[in-house]
């Protein structure tokens, strides 16, 4: 027995990669994350939707680079020494799709438990509730577990 398969048996714990976007913290399901890389040169795609403005080369694959900050109506910051690209694999209409997500900072890989989960509050949020799977608590802070399929579709 081993811990890597814990998700199979313990449905209430969830491995996440904690990233920072602007002032907010987001928890990405670690099962989606393929790798985390330093920023690379981007290629703008004219005519693409604002939240997938460009493509990048990740190990010989050309993949879209998504900017969640645009989706959440947050200001875009210039790249800093802490900026990273989190490469995730999503299932879009039954097809696995690799997508890069710009993060202003990557904190750590950690576990949040469903007992920490807060129902999505309807008030006081300046973003669309359907983009959020749920809110969890991490180190006394509220973090957003985003619904990536919804955000990118």
């Amino acid at each position: 027995m081993n811990d890597g398969l814990a998700g199979e048996r313990q449905a209430d714990a969830m491995q996440v990669v904690m990233i920072g976007l602007g002032e907010e913290k987001f928890a990405l399901d670690a099962g989606l994350v393929r790798e985390i890389i330093d920023p690379v040169p981007v290629t703008k795609v004219a005519g693409a939707r604002a939240f997938v403005p460009s493509v990048i080369n990740v190990r010989g694959n050309v993949i879209p680079l998504a900017d969640l900050r645009i989706r959440f109506g947050m200001p875009q910051l210039d790249d800093t020494a802490e900026t990273r690209i989190v490469v995730i694999e999503l299932d879009l209409d039954g097809e696995p799709v690799l997508v890069g997500v710009t993060a202003d900072k990557v904190y750590e890989v950690t576990e949040i438990s469903q007992t920490d989960v807060q129902q999505t509050p309807r008030v006081g949020m300046h973003w669309k509730p359907e983009f959020i799977r749920f809110i969890a608590k991490w180190r006394e802070e509220f973090v957003i577990v985003p619904n990536m399929e919804r955000i990118l579709n």
């Binding site: 795609v45 693409a48 493509v55 879209p64 990118l152």
Partner: peptide
């Protein structure tokens, strides 16, 4: 190009 750019013709 990926699905996310399928609208770009």
């Amino acid at each position: 190009l990926s699905k996310l750019h399928s609208d770009v013709t």
